[in-house]
Simulated assay, not measured.
Amino acid sequence: MTISKKPIILNLSAALFDVDGTIVDSTGPIGDFWRAFAKDKPYFDPEYVIDISHGWRTFDVIAKFAPDFAKPDYVTQLEGSVPDLYGSTAKEIPGSIKLVSDLLKLEREYSLNNQRIAIATSGTYLMATKWFKILGLEVPKVFITAESVQKGKPDPEPYLLGRSSLGYEKKGTVVVFEDAQAGIEAGLAADCLVIGIASTYNKDEVKSFGADIVVPSLEGIHVDGYDKESDTFRLVINDYSFANERVFQLQT
């Protein structure tokens, strides 16, 4: 179908965000981490791991490719050191700081009972919150990490937990912001609308992963108020390369 270049306007109940590749560009730091991890492990191919594991929990990667080191406390400590050791090359996914901040402001501006944003990342709490500190972002109250779930993405558990924690387990339209195949599949399986960001992969790859909307970054997306009657906030998407029929059916 031909995509209209008119803005996409959606009334949404809540927004769930991945972190790496969605809020922060940590590609460089994560790559440096895996290469350092592999130095004394000739059986561990860091380039292959970097290529195939985006969106996975670090514990799941190590359990698969270096199982002798798959000890939860060790992995948590190891991953938590990534921002400290390699974080100098991390940067914002364009538009993420403003979008996340504006969603966090909704609770205060409209005296809502709860925030309308949650984090659902495959990273550990220690690492993910350090990325927020580096970017100068407030940490949302609902912050789901690798330690929060039994099964990581592409299993929908992280996003199902995000929905239920915000009070939208079986109601409302919830959007997921993701960049990786595992996360996009998890968001769709949790019955969320998925906005795929072409940050880690190109737009055609992100589309092939099943994203409902494909955007180049978060710069062309903004929050446009809250409607008390429907208990939804309005999200306006001005810059996108693809949107499927499901999206146009949801438009206001």
Results as ranks from 00 to 15, higher is better:
R57D: 04
W34H: 04
E109V: 10
R116Y: 02
A70K: 06
F37D: 05
A14P: 07
G21C: 08
L103H: 08
P42W: 00
T27I: 07
I50A: 07
K130H: 02
G123Q: 10
S26V: 03
P29K: 12
K105V: 05
L103M: 14
G95K: 14
D18F: 01
D84E: 09
D51G: 11
L126A: 13
K41T: 02
E79M: 02
R57H: 02
S96W: 04
Y74W: 01
A118L: 11
I93P: 11
A90Y: 00
P42T: 07
F69Q: 04
P72A: 10
I97Q: 15
F65A: 12
F37V: 04
P67V: 04
L16Q: 12
V75L: 05
T27K: 06
A118C: 11
V24R: 05
Q77L: 06
G28W: 00
E47A: 14
P83N: 14
T22N: 05
S88F: 00
V75G: 03
I23W: 00
Q115K: 13
T22R: 04
L78P: 04
K91W: 00
N11Y: 04
L16E: 07
Y125P: 05
Q77H: 02
R57T: 09
L112E: 09
G21D: 05
P46F: 07
Y125Q: 12
I50D: 07
S88D: 10
K71M: 03
K39N: 02
G80V: 04
I97A: 15
D102T: 12
D45S: 09
P72S: 09
P94H: 06
D84F: 02
F59W: 05
Y125K: 15
L12C: 15
K71W: 00
R35W: 00
G31S: 12
K98D: 11
S26P: 02
I23G: 06
G80N: 03
A66P: 08
L106I: 14
E92C: 11
T76G: 03
A120C: 15
K98N: 13
V100C: 12
G28I: 13
V24D: 05
A66E: 06
L126P: 06
A14N: 09
K64T: 10
G28E: 02
A63L: 09
I93S: 13
